[in-house]
Each structure stands twice: as C-alpha cells, then as structure tokens.
Simulated assay, not measured.
Amino acid sequence: MSTCATLSRELSEPLAATAATATTWLLLEQNGPWGAKALGESHLDAAVGRALEAAAAGTGVRVALIRRPGRHADCLPTARHEVVVAHAVPGRSWVRRGAVADPAELLELDFAALGAGDHGGFGAEHVGGPIALVCTNGRRDRCCALLGRPLAAELAAAGHSEVWEVTHLGGHRFSPTMLVLPYGYAYGRLTAESAKEVLAATAAGQMVPEWSRGRSGWDRPGQAADHAVRVAAGETAVDALTVAQRPAGEGRWLVGVVHEDGRAWEVEVVEGASEPARPESCGKAAGTPSRMDVAAVRQVA
C-alpha cells in the first residue's frame, strides 16, 4: 500500500526544519475517538474546543488533545482531564502539570503570557523524565494510525518514559512522528529502537540529529540553522546553541547561531520546494511542500 510516508521516505525528503512551530504547548487529556479536526470532533465540547483554538491564535501556543496509548472505543466522558503545559524556547523550557474537571476552565488562562513563557502559576512543576507525544490520529492521516499507534504502544509497554498519543504534530508524511518534552524537539521516521534512543538522550539533556525535525520553539529557518550547525560541530546538547534569524530577501534568511562556549556561525537559509510533487498527507493531491535549504554555513567566531 502506497502512503504519503512511504513516498516521502522513497524520495529521501529531508526531516530537518519540518517541525510544527510553537513556543508553548497546551495539551488536554481527552479520551475516546478523535476526528480529523479533533478540537471540534471528539468528546470535548466543540464550542470549548473552538474557543481554545481561538484563544491560542497568534500567541505562540499550540493546543492539542492527548490520551494514553491503547484501544479507543467510544467511552464515558472523562471525569478529570489531565493538562500538560510546556514552554519549548531554548534555555527557558519548563513543563507544568494540572487537571481540570471542565476543560472550559482553561479559557481563563492568559494565552499571550503562556506563549511568552509565563505559566502564571498553573499547576505544578513536572519533576519526572521525558514526556513522549506520538501522533496517532488516523482520522487526520492513516499513516499516523498505522505507524504511530504501534510505536506509542511499544514505548508505553517499555516503561522508560511517560507516553501519550497526541492529535496532531504536523508532517504526517514523516510518520511515525514524536514530540519530546521538556525541550520540544520533534522527530520523524522513528522505529521503536530509535525512539528509545531519543528518549534516553532527552533524559540526559541531549538531542539526536539523525531523526530530528527541529525544535518547535524556533521558526523553520532557525530549525534549519540549528540542525546545520549541530551536524557541522558535532553538538547534541539541547541548550548549547541559541539562534537569531533575520530576513535577507524574499524566501531567504541569515541566521546567527551562537554556542554557549562563544563560537558563532552565520547560516544562510533559503526556502525551496520539494520536487517531484508528492502528497503532504494521504488523500491529498500531490504538491511541492516548502523546504528550508541551507546554502552556507560560515563560522564567524
């Protein structure tokens, strides 16, 4: 069976700089089935889902639903909904945990402050290990169900990290995809073995460039520059690099990357189109997805 994921792999489409961008993730537990647009198509009240999405718009906050791995037949409404809020900006990452009886309570949060990294005292600090979020929403793309659900189940059974299924991480054609907190690095085309390697690295404050799609706290040009410098310098410590980008013409950026030891690079990033045409998701018409190509990496200090 041909899928968007198999075709992307066959075309050797790069993983780098394809992560969804979000400074902060607001993750709400919602059991039962999910529709393609899960915030409005689940046991969550559709009006509340739409209001959460509207409240997050333009703030840097990305809202998604989560559930524990396993079978998801129709079920009774969730009595208490666990909530995970995570800020993924390098050097300022944090994860907070809480629970609500009514998801509408989350509309009282200051979304602009959350996006800027101020949790406002929500919940309590997460003190455990890495949190793995595996995209499994087959109603949005069959690859996420066919490849994501078995991965989530195996990782949960292994018991090395906390594992959740999540509604949407973007990049279905890179399935199975996983976002790892607290740092917000996204990964794609994982196997159970590589996913466990990623989680072990995260627990040690490291990332794994080979399967990295980028850190969600940066825009895509910054993700591309981060990846290029990491590969060139052999650097995997998650917070070793800081990134600052500036436009340099249409579809072009100059990105300054600074290492905590004082080294610095200037990276030229150019937006291109992936050829030949391929579907970005199963069932969609073939297109040429945007990609971020690194034109030059210059060490300046």
Rank of each mutant, 00 (worst) to 15 (best):
C4H: 05
A5T: 14
T6A: 14
L7G: 15
A17W: 00
A17R: 00
T18L: 05
T23I: 10
L28M: 01
N31S: 15
G32A: 15
G35R: 01
K37H: 11
K37N: 10
E41Y: 05
G49F: 04
A51T: 11
A56E: 07
G58W: 04
R67M: 00
R67C: 05
H72C: 12
H81A: 09
V84T: 11
V84C: 14
P90N: 14
G91L: 05
R92D: 10
W94S: 12
W94F: 11
G98W: 04
A99R: 06
V100R: 10
D102A: 10
A104E: 08
L107Q: 00
E108R: 06
D110I: 01
L114Y: 12
A116I: 08
D118P: 10
G120M: 07
L146I: 08
E154L: 13
A158Y: 00
T167S: 13
G171N: 15
P176D: 11
L179Q: 03
L181H: 04
A195H: 05
K196E: 13
A201S: 13
M207R: 14
M207Y: 06
V208Y: 00
P209G: 10
W211T: 15
G214D: 00
Q223Y: 02
V231M: 06
L241R: 06
P247G: 09
G249Q: 08
V255T: 03
V258G: 13
V270P: 14
E271F: 02
A273S: 10
S274D: 12
E275R: 07
A277Q: 11
C282P: 01
G283L: 04
S290T: 13
V300Y: 03
A301Q: 14
